[in-house]
Structure formats: structure tokens, C-alpha cells
């Protein structure tokens, strides 16, 4: 595979699939098991529970090391992803590069989250929608920890395969990457209409049905995105 776009797509998919959450959950579960065993066998005088607890402690420690290793993989892949984009130099080595090193950064406005898009959500020429399940909070934490790559030639932040920009007050906004969908003005309006009508094309708000700027292709694109909405039912649209 030599096409940088295809390689980047694979890297993004790999970043998304790395079992970071699973390992964190595993350590939480193991810790809880250890607490329960310790509480139940306290003062019994048997060696076996103590040995079991020592093994669990080792398991937790090894899993923690694996998590650190995943962090290294993530950093390397982000760095490579950054250089795949022409003219862009990754700066992962700097502790907190970009705006996050200069001012507190805050999460994207809720209008970007698919399940929070509402009738009044402001529409732009380009609107990036965050699909449910996308770990934007984790991305922000990574940016704050200095784990994101700052792309100086594009003035945007790259983390877990997702690009983010930063507004004047330090509000982060999503741009592109796994779990992010870009819609143009009329597609986003169509999406707002579908959400308001709970996916029922027959009960669209009349203002939107009459809107000369929204065409058939816009409804189609909006319907694809609406399939990820919490109110979507398969018989909709």
C-alpha cells in the first residue's frame, strides 16, 4: 500500500481500535476482585488468598505497563500520521505545543454532538458533527497532557487520528477524523430537520421542506448521518 490517504485511513482505524478502554476496565475489575478477596479472607490465616492477591497485583502492574506501551504506539502513529500530510511536520516531542500550551482549552460546543444538534443550532458553511461514542473527552485530555501532535503548518491539533481547531477563547472544535462527519450548510439544515421530525420525512418542519437551499442530495446525506442519532429507528427515513 503506497497511497498516503489509504495508509492514513488504516492508521486511524488502528488508533481507534487500540484496546485502551478495555485495559483500563480490566484493571478496575481486577482491583475490585482483589478488594473483595481481601475483605472476605481477612484474618483466616491461609496463604492461598495472600498469594492470589500478589498474583492479581502483578496482573494489574503488567496491564499498566501494556497501557503505557499502547500510549507509545499511539504517539508513534500520530507522529507518522502527521508527516503523511504533505508539508506538515509533527511536533510530538514538545510537551504542550499549540494553543493548549498558552491558554486553558474547553470542549467543543454541544451543537457539534449529533445527539445535541437542535432546531436552533447555528449553521456554518461547513459543520463537523461528532458521532456518538467518539471519545472527544479523551482527546481533550490527551491535548491537555501534551500528547497531541500540533501541526504548525495547518495550525491544528492531531490526536487519535482526529484533527481539531481552536477558537479565540480556547474552545476546541472538531474538524475531521474517525467519528467526525463534515456536512455542508444545506446538509446540516436537512439533518436538523430530520432530527426535529424524529426521522419521519413526512412530518418535516414546513419551513425546511420549503427551503430552496435544501435539495434531495442533502436529505440523503443527512439521513446517513441521522442513522447514528439516538432517536433513529431502522424503519425511519
Amino acid at each position: 500500500m503506497s497511497n498516503p490517504g489509504e495508509i492514513a485511513a488504516v492508521i486511524r482505524a488502528v488508533l481507534e481500535a487500540l484496546p485502551v478502554d478495555a485495559l483500563r476496565a480490566a484493571n478496575t475489575a481486577a482491583g475490585e476482585s482483589a478488594e473483595r478477596i481481601a475483605a472476605a479472607t481477612e484474618g483466616t490465616g491461609h496463604d492461598a488468598p495472600r498469594e492470589a492477591l500478589a498474583h492479581i497485583a502483578e496482573g494489574i502492574e503488567r496491564t499498566g505497563e501494556a497501557l503505557a506501551g499502547l500510549g507509545e504506539i499511539r504517539e508513534r502513529l500520530n507522529a507518522y500520521l502527521a508527516v503523511l500530510v504533505p508539508g506538515v511536520e509533527a511536533m510530538v516531542a514538545r510537551p504542550i505545543a499549540g494553543p493548549a500550551g498558552k491558554r486553558p482549552i474547553t470542549p467543543p460546543n454541544r451543537r457539534h454532538h449529533l445527539n445535541s444538534v437542535g432546531r436552533k443550532s447555528q449553521v456554518r458553511e461547513e459543520n463537523t458533527v461528532i458521532l456518538p461514542g467518539t471519545d472527544v473527552r479523551g482527546d481533550l485530555d490527551a491535548i491537555r497532557r501534551g500528547e497531541a501532535a500540533w501541526l504548525p503548518d495547518r495550525d491544528r491539533c492531531l490526536v487519535n487520528g482526529r484533527l481539531y481547531g481552536v477558537e479565540v477563547p480556547g474552545t476546541v472544535y472538531p474538524d475531521e477524523g474517525p467519528g467526525l462527519v463534515k456536512l455542508n450548510r444545506s446538509e446540516y439544515k436537512a439533518l436538523k430537520g430530520l432530527i426535529e421530525a424524529r426521522g419521519d420525512m413526512d412530518s418535516l418542519p414546513s419551513a425546511l421542506a420549503n427551503n430552496p437551499a435544501v435539495t434531495g442530495a442533502d436529505w440523503q446525506r443527512a439521513a446517513e448521518v441521522y442513522e447514528h442519532h439516538k432517536d433513529y429507528r431502522s424503519e425511519d427515513t
Partner: peptide, 15 residues
């Protein structure tokens, strides 16, 4: 590391 963690938990179950 994960294989070692799995082995450790197996030993814990055995205990």
C-alpha cells in the same frame, strides 16, 4: 505484558 498479566490472573484463580 498482556500475556504475563493473563498468566498472573490464572495463578490467582488457581490460588
Amino acid at each position: 505484558r498482556l500475556r504475563r498479566a493473563v498468566a498472573a490472573y490464572r495463578a490467582a484463580v488457581s490460588c
